[in-house]
């Protein structure tokens, strides 16, 4: 059926998943908001019922079809891992190291050759960010280099 309509099966699957997610969210909202006082629960309950109606309507009239064809799974996983690693580094080591790793990682994932040139450019951008935010704007970015410099 989906082939007949010119719709790829995975796209239809993603749209159905969205409808299910919407329905699941609606049920969760309605359950959670039951424990709230009347005035606090009023709007969440209305949103919950509307989400439920929307889930049904999304199943029937999905509109523009989802398009995940161009997404490369391996790259997506690497991107997520990189961003999570960068956030962890910012929290536990410092923004200078976290941003440097993020810059090098992003450029490498997109196919930029990993070499001295990239590492130096990453260093230059991180130094520029540190100078603008720490020096000009007075935002104390944490880090083993930024910390003592802009404290």
């Amino acid at each position: 059926m989906s082939r007949h309509l010119g719709i790829s099966a995975p796209a239809r699957g993603f749209d159905l998943a969205l409808a299910l997610l919407c329905g699941g969210l609606a049920v969760a909202v309605l359950i959670v908001s039951r424990g709230y006082p009347e005035s606090a629960a009023a709007l969440p309950e209305i949103i919950g019922y509307l989400l439920l109606a929307c889930a049904v309507a999304l199943g029937c009239f999905p509109g523009k079809r989802a398009d995940f064809e161009a997404v490369r799974g391996a790259r997506l996983v690497m991107t997520l891992a990189l961003v999570i690693a960068a956030v962890a580094l910012i929290e536990w080591v410092g923004a200078d190291i976290g941003l440097w790793v993020l810059f090098v990682g992003c450029a490498w994932i997109m196919g930029y050759p990993l070499g001295g040139r990239l590492l130096v450019m990453a260093l230059a951008l991180v130094a520029l960010i540190g100078a603008v935010f720490g020096g000009l704007l007075g935002v104390a970015l944490p880090g083993p280099i930024f910390g003592p410099l802009f404290a």
Partner: peptide, 20 residues
């Protein structure tokens, strides 16, 4: 402008902005 460096710069600026 090489796209990889552009993407990397936007990522760094976004994370710094969100922190700031």
């Amino acid at each position: 402008i090489p796209q990889p460096l552009l993407a990397a710069s936007i990522a760094c600026l976004c994370l710094t902005g969100a922190y700031a």
